[in-house]
């Protein structure tokens, strides 16, 4: 049925992939990351949505960490809060602000769901991610 459309789609992706590949070889992989952006993809991909990109820098211009990590109960772990749309429209997590009162409302799906499909949950540009080798083990550590 959609055979043709799908084919041209695949070609487009193949070409894009090739271009992206050339780019990756030309540049180190971490060349353009904004420090502390969180990609959240526990469920999004599986439900046919792009992963969520949460920008810390943008939010910390407006709020102290305490607002989210103490008052709203976000734990310090990428993907660790098991956020779902049901919780969000219930006023929890992102939904505590993205409700049309404090920030734009939840129907703006693609403002949050803006990640490249298939990107795993992680925090971008972190020190652990940038290490050449794993951290050392102290001699006296048990």
């Amino acid at each position: 049925m959609f055979c043709n459309a799908e084919h041209s789609f695949k070609w487009k992706y193949a070409l894009l992939g090739l271009l992206a590949g050339m780019f990756v070889f030309a540049l180190p992989p971490t060349a353009k990351a904004e420090y502390a952006d969180v990609i959240i993809n526990n469920y999004a991909d599986a439900a046919g949505m792009r992963p969520v990109v949460f920008p810390h820098w943008f939010h910390r211009v407006r709020f102290r960490c305490k607002v989210c990590h103490a008052d709203l109960g976000f734990q310090f772990k990428a993907g660790g809060n098991k956020i779902t749309m049901a919780k969000i429209i219930d006023g929890k997590f992102c939904g505590a602000c993205h409700n049309g009162e404090i920030a734009w409302s939840v129907e703006n799906c693609n403002m949050c769901h803006s990640g490249i499909p298939g990107t795993p949950t992680h925090i971008h540009g972190s020190t652990v991610q940038r290490l050449v080798a794993p951290p050392y083990k102290a001699l006296n550590s048990k």
């Binding site: 992989p29 060349a31 353009k32 990351a33 904004e34 952006d37 990609i39 792009r50 990109v53 693609n110 769901h113 803006s114 990640g115 490249i116 499909p117 990107t119 971008h124």
Partner: peptide, 8 residues
């Protein structure tokens, strides 16, 4: 950025 989808 490399992780935002430009197609979006």
């Amino acid at each position: 950025s490399g992780y935002h989808d430009p197609e979006n």
